[in-house]
Design a protein around this nucleic acid. Structure first.
Lengths: 233, 233
DNA sequence: ACCGCATTATGTATGACTTATTCAAGAGCC
DNA sequence: GGCTCTTGAATAAGTCATACATAATGCGGT
């Protein structure tokens, strides 16, 4: 499903990573390298490389004489794209979706403000294009097509902000929106008010109106937060 | 300086990582594993593990028959704590400091709002303690002592937000503040207005006044932005 | 322009050895 | 007796060297 290729160590990684983030191995649980090697039918060198990557994500800690110890969730590198993906497709899904949406609500308004100051003409054009695409696909159960424009729109905004810490969050937002649509709560067509807001954000950025861009984007994210509060546990 | 121990692969990592993030190897430059092994006097297995970690940070890409290729900066995992550290202590310093401060300005106000809703009594106590500590050390060139309270304050706010994506940013804020003080722009005592704002944030959170906590924190971050001349008006 | 083949550097497997750390047994002490 | 401290053996990760597999690349020939 994710990446079936890339070498044996990646395969071991795609087995251990999801298992750990899903909580199958509780914190403190120790795995032995030889075991992993036998279980997956690979050599120790392959296991070592996989463990090193897990270690760089802070999912595990490898210590001499003791083994590979699973770390508690509050030590994980939660910004690592793979960790995010694994958690989104595991049992942690609702929780992860909520925290990511909160992150969005903090970052996107500021990103929109900066985009209004820095967006290139090409980026402005892309924004209006996708906003119009959202309008066009907002009726008649075209959720998948709508999703494409929605994710593209937010990705462009974050990229146009010109901030290197914002741009990578485009992936996060895309994952969030995709998760919402697919596993989602979106049974029917998207809220027309949200669609309109996107169009107005595109306008505000094109017209260099930073304050409006920020305020309108904040309205969008508030809507996203409200959606999740409905299905609160 | 960073971590002098942890195995040979970590030593290779601490040699290659800073070099790459500092731009010593331009994007597209290829390194061969054997070369690295010879240069550092280690075996190929050690090099492979180091390369795997660099690969997980997306600093490099390892491909068959071609070697280890350095990736352009826009592919890096800029949220990886080590990447942040390396960039902060390298030539990318000013740029990194700016983008992190912008990130702060987006995240911290929202975190403060959530902290006002979720902070435990212990966390509230810690906040007032550190706010008072900032007051006490704000005069007489006690910059280092002031820094301790300042970083602790912001760390507690982010942790108290209860959002798993916010808490790890405590490290980022700490690094930012430390960088500002040490290599910094802070020649004299901190701005009294900023100190007062921290005290009032602590009060707002203790009194569960989410709106005030957010607004006051926004004032703090605006000040930080102004220091760096990132501000628009 | 196309195809095939030799080259080449990473990928994988394995065995031998090193080293740090744990745990337990035993010595010494109060 | 119960206690800490020391010693040493067991153990699993860490390191190295070697042999081989594999897949891109680029050359040369058709």
């Amino acid at each position: 499903m994710t990446t079936e290729e890339g070498g044996l160590h990646a395969r071991v990684l795609d087995a251990l990573g999801p298992a750990i983030t899903a909580g199958e191995y509780p914190p403190g649980r120790v795995l032995r390298a030889d075991e992993i090697a036998q279980t997956h039918g690979v050599s120790r060198s392959v296991v070592r490389e996989a463990v090193r990557v897990l270690e760089s994500m802070r999912l595990v800690e490898s210590r001499r004489r003791v083994g590979v110890t699973v770390l508690p969730a509050d030590r994980w590198n939660v910004y690592d794209p793979r960790v995010i993906r694994w958690r989104l497709s595991g049992t942690d899904r609702p929780r992860q979706l909520r925290s990511l949406t909160v992150l969005r609500s903090a970052v996107e308004p500021v990103a929109a403000r900066l985009a209004a100051l820095n967006a290139t003409p090409e980026q402005c054009a892309a924004l209006t294009e996708h906003a119009l695409g959202m309008v066009a696909t907002s009726r008649g159960r075209q959720l998948e097509a709508y999703l494409v424009h929605d994710t593209a729109f937010h990705r462009v905004v974050l990229a146009a902000s010109g901030n290197e810490m914002f741009a990578p969050l485009g992936e996060v937002v895309a994952a969030t929106l995709t998760g919402r649509t697919r596993h989602g709560v979106m049974f029917e067509d998207p809220d027309p008010a949200a669609v309109t807001l996107h169009v107005r954000v595109a306008e505000a950025i094109r017209e260099r109106d930073a304050a409006a861009a920020e305020r309108l984007t904040r309205d969008i994210t508030v809507g996203a937060l409200r959606e999740l509060d409905v299905l609160a546990p």
